[in-house]
Simulated scan of single mutants.
Amino acid sequence: MRHLAANALTLLVVLGVALAAAVGWGVRSFHAPGPLEAPATVILDKGDSLAVASRKLAQSGAISDPLIFRLGARYRGDAGRLRFGEYEIPARASMAQILDILVSGRAVQHLVTIPEGLTSWEVVQRLNAAEILSGEIAEIPEEGSLAPDTYAVARGESRAALIARMQAAQERILQEAWAARDKDLPLASPREALILASIIEKETGVPDERRVVASVFVNRLRKGMRLQTDPTVVYGLTQGKGGLDRGLRRSELAKPTPWNTYLIDGLPPTPIANPGRESIFAAVQPARTEFLYFVADGSGGHAFARTLAEHNRNVARWRRIERERAD
């Protein structure tokens, strides 16, 4: 009996030593530098289990032993804390470091750029084409309500969530601008400022001109003159669903729509695009000028005029430039 007991004790000691050695090896493997020679990207989909995550990591070459990764995650209590997303795994990252990344939720950020002057319909088309986003946009957002900018998004972020971010940003900009507005503006509300800003955005792509263009429209509003701006006519014809890719015809300038500022007094009923921050501030802080007219000058900017006679000379000069370019 003593012999059997001694043998059993010896076996237990041997097993204990072997187990301790195995645990030590597993701990060292979990914290040792990984096999990746260059950074790799791993995507965890919503609902992926620890087993699926470890398999994806192994397939990407980020870890060499999925079992050790799973055991380490369970030992640390992180088995159920993995967050879905797209992750960049650094070269030579240990399993412990990789687990930290997957639990942190620090997913790869992608940039989605919305330029100034797009209509809401055009913004939706752009977001629908962005494959990194998910979900549907239930309806076209209100015109002018989206702040143009470059937005950082994680793979899988919903389009609706990004729309909400853009709307919140535009509302903040508009309220900030309205609070800082010139007090003698012929504008009754932030919405009217947004409408004017959208016209400014579509009329010039030259940053230094925005406040001067704004002054022309503000001066016209003060005098009760019609705004007579082509982009509003285009919007009335297209409802914001793309541009014309050509000049306006006389028949179109004479076509009645709620946005035809050659035929209506004052501002149109809605914005005609989504203006950026600078155009919104230009609308509420226009330059102090006596200009009532402007026309393209051939250099990408505009020639401004105080009188109709001066404006007609500028128009004639622009027509000559157009003919010369055509020839």
Rank of each mutant, 00 (worst) to 15 (best):
149 D>R: 00
159 R>Y: 09
167 Q>R: 15
151 Y>E: 01
156 G>R: 05
160 A>N: 05
181 R>W: 09
192 E>R: 03
198 S>D: 08
158 S>M: 10
169 A>V: 00
160 A>V: 02
170 Q>R: 02
145 S>H: 09
169 A>G: 01
158 S>N: 11
170 Q>I: 01
165 R>E: 13
152 A>N: 07
154 A>T: 13
147 A>Q: 07
159 R>H: 11
162 L>N: 10
195 I>V: 15
144 G>Y: 03
141 P>A: 05
145 S>Q: 12
196 L>P: 13
152 A>I: 06
176 E>P: 03
167 Q>T: 14
172 R>W: 00
149 D>K: 00
178 W>T: 11
170 Q>A: 02
183 K>H: 00
170 Q>C: 00
164 A>L: 10
160 A>E: 15
167 Q>L: 06
162 L>I: 03
181 R>L: 04
146 L>M: 04
170 Q>H: 03
193 A>R: 08
165 R>D: 11
180 A>M: 03
179 A>K: 15
200 I>W: 12
199 I>W: 11
195 I>L: 03
150 T>C: 04
174 L>A: 07
142 E>Y: 07
175 Q>W: 01
200 I>H: 13
165 R>L: 10
185 L>I: 08
171 E>D: 15
184 D>G: 06
197 A>I: 01
195 I>R: 12
183 K>L: 05
174 L>C: 09
171 E>G: 04
200 I>V: 14
161 A>W: 02
138 A>T: 09
170 Q>K: 01
185 L>Y: 08
153 V>F: 15
169 A>F: 05
185 L>W: 07
182 D>W: 05
187 L>S: 12
158 S>W: 08
158 S>C: 00
185 L>A: 00
150 T>R: 08
140 I>A: 02
182 D>R: 15
148 P>V: 01
182 D>S: 14
174 L>T: 12
142 E>A: 11
162 L>C: 06
180 A>G: 07
166 M>V: 06
140 I>L: 06
199 I>R: 06
162 L>A: 08
180 A>P: 06
185 L>S: 07
188 A>C: 08
197 A>K: 07
164 A>I: 10
162 L>E: 05
179 A>T: 13
182 D>E: 06
142 E>T: 15
198 S>C: 06
187 L>M: 12
177 A>R: 03
187 L>D: 12
169 A>L: 02
174 L>W: 11
201 E>H: 03
199 I>A: 09
163 I>M: 15
141 P>M: 04
155 R>H: 08
180 A>R: 15
182 D>M: 03
193 A>N: 03
151 Y>C: 02
198 S>K: 07
163 I>W: 11
150 T>V: 08
141 P>R: 10
164 A>M: 04
180 A>W: 00
163 I>K: 12
187 L>G: 14
164 A>R: 13
146 L>Y: 01
195 I>F: 13
183 K>V: 03
180 A>Q: 15
138 A>E: 13
201 E>L: 01
143 E>F: 01
178 W>A: 08
146 L>A: 01
169 A>P: 01
151 Y>D: 09
177 A>W: 11
144 G>N: 12
201 E>F: 04
164 A>V: 11
171 E>R: 13
145 S>P: 10
158 S>T: 15
197 A>H: 05
145 S>R: 14
166 M>N: 09
188 A>H: 14
187 L>W: 11
150 T>N: 12
147 A>F: 00
186 P>A: 00
192 E>M: 02
202 K>G: 07
199 I>N: 10
151 Y>H: 06
191 R>I: 03
140 I>C: 04
155 R>N: 00
